[in-house]
Design a protein around this nucleic acid. Structure first.
Lengths: 184, 184
DNA sequence: CGACAATACATCGTTGTCGATGTATTGCGT
DNA sequence: ACGCAATACATCGACAACGATGTATTGTCG
């Protein structure tokens, strides 16, 4: 399965878990979620829907369209719900490390509906954020922010550090409440 | 030109602007820059090098390999340098909005070597960060962070806000110094 | 001495992505 | 009356990405 596809499919499954939708509405919700960062083309969405339908993860009912062409209202099948949970519980490494994908996972993580499993996913992100990332090297030696002359490269390090801190503190808070919920 | 390709090619051109390198070394530098977030496969890099060579943006000299197979040492041609500057001065919208691509642009923005043009690029990023992004909707109404029940979705909003603030303050500082440099 | 990692590149087939284009309807502005 | 935007979906071709696999050499560890 190609990489972006995974996230697009996750978004489709995730939105359909909330409520049955037709393709056009799905498109708008996906645009709201990730569109300002990286828009998804129509000609990418519809084939993705077909793939999922072919795999038995969703079913379509054709309705006379209010407005224009007939709508295909899409519903998650039980297999689709199981697959959604499977994907949320065990995201690929890239889905943890790439911010865009991570946000997509987060957007639907509540569907996992299992605090310990949710905590496990958050912990993977935490482990990733904690390992010191070095963007630039001089030979083999990683350069620290202070050693980087270029202001733009320093910016990368400054921003990465600040955002890492912000997310880590959110992760710690959320993990605490998740664990508290489990201990009851 | 496909989307990811743009960024990979920018990284190749950017690294070669610093110094001639062979493919394998290029691969390692790219891995250091973006690999922890989203690794690039070997079988993606070598075709990209070929594309750029075919377009006359870089030249290769074959050297007897210290270690293994003969090395192809890659050098930027004058057209390659011009193209690098062109791409840095006028990145596509996605390169501004997608954090991964934006970081790649930042990593090489110094090669633009023209403070007003650099400031222009930073301003585009600033404009993007300032426009309020709403990830979730209830019908047509965008939901604010406080209205979102789901803790994970709240996390997205919390993190996005914090990182946006951090980056904005860096942008303001850097733009000030860029403008001060221009006023001399 | 033999295995294995690292160096260094290349090719191939599958699959996803995207822009372009097409079709058809409703409704709004002018 | 006419066009244009929005709704709603579909197809096609070009191309990039990637995993798998191959080739060949040097250095290292046990």
């Amino acid at each position: 399965m190609r990489h972006n596809a995974v996230m697009l499919e996750l978004a489709i499954l995730g939105f359909l878990h909330d409520a049955p939708l037709h393709g056009y509405e799905l498109r708008k919700r996906i645009a709201a979620l990730t569109g300002h960062v990286k828009p998804v083309a129509e000609s990418t969405l519809y084939p993705a829907i077909k793939r999922l339908e072919k795999a038995g993860l969703l079913a379509r009912r054709t309705q006379p369209g209010a407005g224009a062409a007939p709508r295909h209202v899409l519903t998650l099948t039980p297999e689709g719900q199981a697959e959604l949970r499977r994907r949320l519980a065990h995201p690929a490494d890239v889905d943890i490390t790439d911010e865009n994908r991570w946000f997509t996972v987060l957007a639907f993580l509540r569907h996992l509906d299992d605090p310990p499993a949710q905590a496990e996913v958050l912990e993977r992100r935490m482990a990733f954020l904690r390992q010191p990332s070095s963007f630039f090297y001089e030979g083999d030696r990683p350069l620290r922010a202070e050693e980087v002359e270029d202001p733009f490269r320093r910016g990368i390090l400054t921003i990465a550090r600040a955002t890492g801190q912000a997310e880590l503190s959110w992760l710690r808070r959320t993990l605490d409440t998740l664990r508290a919920a489990t201990d009851d």
